[in-house]
Design a protein around this nucleic acid. Structure first.
Ligand SMILES: Nc1ncnc2c1ncn2[C@@H]1O[C@H](COP(=O)(O)OP(=O)(O)OP(=O)(O)O)[C@@H](O)[C@H]1O
Length: 680
DNA sequence: ACTCGGTTATTTTTT
DNA sequence: ATAACCGAGT
């Protein structure tokens, strides 16, 4: 096969060694852009074509669903097979197992998946019931602690009981689990924990999956957490056919329990391991790699890795220190325009003396104080930023930042400069209010007693059912008190009507498809009329709902109940990167975390300031700082050809302007590796 | 139960 | 600066 498929997609000697390794444990530990993912993909092809493994006996775990999708496409291109290996994120594989084995953990087959909003809504209720003040101890804090426990495979009983707070956390965790089960729902953590529990308690089930998946591959192994580690370990315990790739310098998910030790101790877990190191980088130019190297040296205890490239020459990465965050955004926009349209006339913001517009007059008389001068300059400049003309291949450009909040100014300036863009994450499509409302209605069709969904929409549109009535209703439902329920419905006919509507849609004919159901929900619940009140905002929201029809369309063929479960599942597991549009010509704005595994011709890394990168909340612990260093390393190594590092000297935060100090990470870069862009 | 005005927290990073 | 939240008045 190497003569055919491996040469269609080139592999170097070291990669080939990994691809053609005998069965048994293999670890590729190598730096950014060295072709780890490519090697993993080709390994799958080799297993199928050369070793004759059945595709379905292979399990490949990727970091996002999108990555799985791309890998599938590539494999189809090479082996042209209709049958493919099982591929997906740990979470999506978890659901698959759980749908199959749900009875073993007391779940119905059509269990719902709660997202963080649902989680917090449930937790808030529990906190109120325990008389814990949710303003002092936020639900999100408990969500985080419970999530952390799950990632470490800890049950409530495994948690500490030292302080009152410890005891509270334990109690909340216990009640939370009870409530989830009562609602026939699971959270993200459960998707990982429950399969492991099933494996631990049912040898026969474990054996079934061990036999099903004869070969297991994991990409981005450095960011696996404890449950994921145990899950993988149990699966391959018999055959030890495990192939993992990763880079300890790119471990950036410590905050959600990822444990770097998993990859570092791999050889201890599997003594027979064949370790492969890849040293040639195929992505970036040498000037970019040199900078990346200098930065990663700030993180102690990284594996030393050689990384070289044949692309000796290339643009020297550019550094610009902007007076403020607006100027930072203008710099990015003007560079994008320069890349796309070529260098335009210099000094565009020189206004002629004869210009007697208001702007012209202001421009000739800058304010006296430095602070307002900055504002003046930024304001003036905004009026003269040229508009982008050539939109081709804009998807080769990315703007990367530490926090979503930074995207705001950048977005405004992109709009001003007519630069098409997409923001990944932030406000995810499926997190928009109107979308979540409709999804809640849809979830009620599967489980009309799902209290979290019920609470969300029972009064949207307004039906005169406030918190008081809802509490009564909730009690009646929990206690299954038919009498109380009937009484309530008599008192509030709108409650009765609500459930009748849900029931009516639920009992729609088998022949109805998901789109019919969606239409009926919008009509019969009055949501459509409520939304389309003639306001412009209402229409925008309505358009979003139309978009929901598009997604739901792909589940039209099945009977609607099955399609609905699948649809809700896909939506719940969708990551923000999955929503990204890779092909249309738009500049991509996203966080450094989301950029993992991706690559772009041109990368702008913005906000290189103390407090942002490294983030203020990561500055206490050296371990956290090291993770920030790796985050920076990930950002830099996304760039193939051009890299811009940008910081601002002042930045508006919470409405007031603060002085920003250039990031300590910049100091690690020798001046000769950068070209400094002087201010205009 | 709703609506308005004042108060408050918000900015890590994600499945 | 802005959105989410809370309490008082309707
Ligand atoms: N042998 C090769 N010859 C030419 N190009 C290659 C080779 N191997 C990989 N590449 C290219 O190099 C780039 C990086 O590859 P890949 O994404 O597999 O690296 P990676 O090690 O997984 O990177 P990261 O650690 O950043 O996720 C891709 O554009 C890929 O197509």
């Amino acid at each position: 096969m190497t003569k055919n498929s491996a040469e269609q997609i080139g592999l170097n000697q070291a990669q080939l060694e990994a691809v053609k390794a005998p069965l048994g444990p293999v670890l590729i530990l190598a730096g950014a852009g060295s072709g780890k993912t490519r090697a993993l993909t080709m390994r799958i092809v080799y297993l199928i074509k050369k070793l004759g493994l059945k595709p379905h006996s292979i399990l490949a775990v990727t970091f996002t669903n999108k990555a799985a999708g791309e890998m599938k496409t590539r494999i189809i291109g090479l082996i042209g097979k209709s049958e493919l290996p099982t591929m997906g994120t740990f979470h999506s594989i978890g659901v698959r197992i759980l749908r199959q084995e749900c009875a073993l953990v007391g779940l119905d087959r059509d269990f719902l998946i709660y997202d963080s909003d649902d989680q917090e809504s449930l937790l808030k209720d529990i906190l109120l019931r325990l008389r814990i003040d949710p303003t002092k101890f936020k639900p999100s804090l408990f969500a985080h602690l419970i999530d952390r426990a799950k990632n470490n495979l800890e049950e409530p009983d495994d948690l500490p009981t030292q302080t009152t707070f410890d005891l509270n956390v334990k109690k909340v965790y216990e009640m939370y689990q009870t409530e989830l089960r009562k609602n026939n729902a699971v959270d993200f953590g459960d998707l990982l924990v429950l399969p492991v529990r099933i494996f631990q308690e049912h040898d026969d089930v474990l054996l079934k999956y061990q036999n099903l998946w004869q070969y297991v591959l994991v990409d981005e192994y450095q960011d696996t957490n404890h449950v994921q580690y145990i899950f993988t370990k149990m699966l391959v315990a018999n055959h030890q056919n495990i192939f993992v790739v990763g880079d300890d310098a790119q471990a950036i998910y410590g905050f959600r329990g990822a444990n770097l030790q998993n990859i570092l101790d791999f050889e201890k877990d599997y003594p027979e391991t064949k370790i492969i190191r890849l040293e040639q980088n195929y992505r970036s130019t040498q000037p970019i790699l040199s900078i990346a190297q200098k930065v990663i040296e700030l993180s102690p205890r990284q594996h030393k890795k050689t990384l070289w490239t044949e692309n000796e020459k290339g643009m020297i990465p550019m550094f610009y220190s902007a007076p403020d965050e607006l100027a930072e955004a203008y710099f990015v926009a003007s560079k994008i325009i320069e890349i796309q349209d070529g260098k335009s006339n210099e000094l565009q913001y020189e206004i002629e003396d004869t210009d007697d517009t208001i702007l012209g007059r202001i421009m000739r008389h800058p304010p006296a104080t430095p602070a307002s001068w900055l504002a003046w300059r930024a304001g003036a400049r905004s009026k003269i930023l040229p508009k982008l003309k050539n939109r081709q291949r804009l998807n080769n450009i990315a703007i990367l930042y530490r926090t979503h909040a930074q995207s705001r100014v950048l977005e405004e300036v992109m709009i001003e400069a007519s630069i098409p863009y997409q923001i990944v994450g932030g406000l995810k499509f499926y997190e928009r209010k109107e979308i979540k409302d409709i999804l809640s209605y849809l979830r009620l069709l599967i489980n009309p007693n799902d209290l979290v969904s019920l609470k969300r929409v029972i009064n949207v549109p307004p039906r005169g059912i406030g918190p008081k009535s809802f509490d009564l209703l909730k009690e009646a439902l929990i206690e299954q008190d038919e009498k109380e329920l009937a009484k309530l419905m008599d008192l509030k006919p709108s409650v009765k009507h609500f459930f009748e509507t849900v029931n009516l849609i639920q009992n729609l004919d088998e022949s109805a498809d998901l789109l019919d159901i969606l239409r009926q929900v919008l009509k019969l619940t009055g949501y459509e009329a409520f939304l389309r009140d003639g306001s412009e905002e209402g229409e925008t929201r309505w358009e979003n709902i139309q978009e929901l029809f598009n997604v739901a369309g792909s589940f039209r063929k099945m009977n609607w109940k099955e399609g609905l479960t699948k649809f809700l599942e896909e939506v719940a597991l969708m990551t923000s990167v999955d929503e990204m549009d890779l092909h249309s010509p738009k500049v991509t704005l996203m966080t450094l975390h989301q950029a993992k595994g991706l690559e772009f011709e041109t990368v702008f890394l913005v906000g290189l300031e103390e407090g942002i990168l490294p983030h203020a909340r990561s500055m206490m612990d050296p371990k956290d700082i090291a993770e920030e260093v790796r985050l920076t390393y990930v950002g830099i190594t996304r760039a193939k050809q051009q890299l811009f590092l940008v910081c601002a000297q002042t930045r508006k935060q919470f409405g007031s302007r603060n002085i920003s100090i250039p990031s300590r990470f910049l100091k690690a870069i020798p001046e000769e590796l950068l070209q400094i862009h002087e201010d205009f």
